[in-house]
Design a protein around this nucleic acid. Structure first.
Ligand SMILES: [Zn+2]
Ligand SMILES: [Zn+2]
Ligand SMILES: [Zn+2]
Ligand SMILES: [Zn+2]
Lengths: 130, 130
DNA sequence: TTTAAATTGTTATAATATAACACCATGTAA
DNA sequence: TTACATGGTGTTATATTATAACAATTTAAA
């Protein structure tokens, strides 16, 4: 299926934190939360985040500079991501729609440029906030 | 059609600069370029950028923290944006595809959340870099 | 004209992210 | 086994991106 990545200590600590968090976490919020576990410097956090993004365990929400664990089993690498973002409560959900991902994976622009990756962010109001 | 926004002095200076630039510009690159015109502080740049984004004259490329002038006449407000980004040369182009924008504008997720805005970034290699 | 809204100028600071370097762990090839 | 490559770590310092707070001014309506 896919290569299993054994996470290193720092990567595991930071992944667990993000994975348990009900909302996306920002890098310095992560840093403050893991200081008790011995991770003291921003770089230690950013390095783990970079790796976790690379292997698809987490995704970065670009418009928010925040990180969310991937709960989409078909999404082992961060190559095709879509999120819905509530502009009031900031609830963020990863969208997994087969038709959407199929449409975007096959999309070709006028220049014939072939894409290897995309990131889509939808903004609106969630049920609660409407 | 749409409300014409008369740009203020700072907004006009900064818009002209971005509009003439062959590639997206970052906020501090803009700052350095306009210092000779009397714009001395980051806030003056960010305020103009915020306004220009709001009225759709420019867009922010979220994954690059850079700003690009809108050349899509049907795009008066930054509510439905799509870009192609070459990961080698960093050439960035605004995509204007009627079918894409129609598909995304009508997209509804499982939760029935209604979206008022989206931003899509495609990554790949441009013709030159392939 | 009066008033409200938007814009400006300014200083300071917050938040996000990377450079550079020394060291350590692990796997692999001679 | 040794040597080497790769990737991860810890650390200090610094770069980059963005906003807070406040006073003054300009603009556009009512
Ligand atoms: Zn995912
Ligand atoms: Zn909400
Ligand atoms: Zn546009
Ligand atoms: Zn290119």
């Amino acid at each position: 299926m896919h290569k299993e990545h054994t996470l290193t200590k720092n990567q595991q600590i930071i992944f667990d934190l993000i994975d348990k968090s009900p909302e996306p976490m920002k890098a310095y919020a992560i840093l403050f939360s893991v200081q008790k576990k011995g991770i003291k410097a921003p770089l230690q956090v950013y390095r783990a985040l970079d790796k976790l993004v690379e292997i698809g365990k987490i995704h970065k929400i670009e418009s928010r500079n925040a990180f969310i664990a991937c709960h989409n089993s078909s999404c082992q690498v961060s190559k095709a991501t879509a999120f819905s973002i509530c502009e009031i409560c900031e609830k963020i959900t990863e969208i997994s729609s087969a038709s959407l991902s199929k449409y975007l994976a096959n999309f070709k622009d006028k220049d014939g440029m072939k894409y290897s990756k995309y990131n889509l962010e939808f903004f609106g109001l969630c049920k609660k906030c409407r």
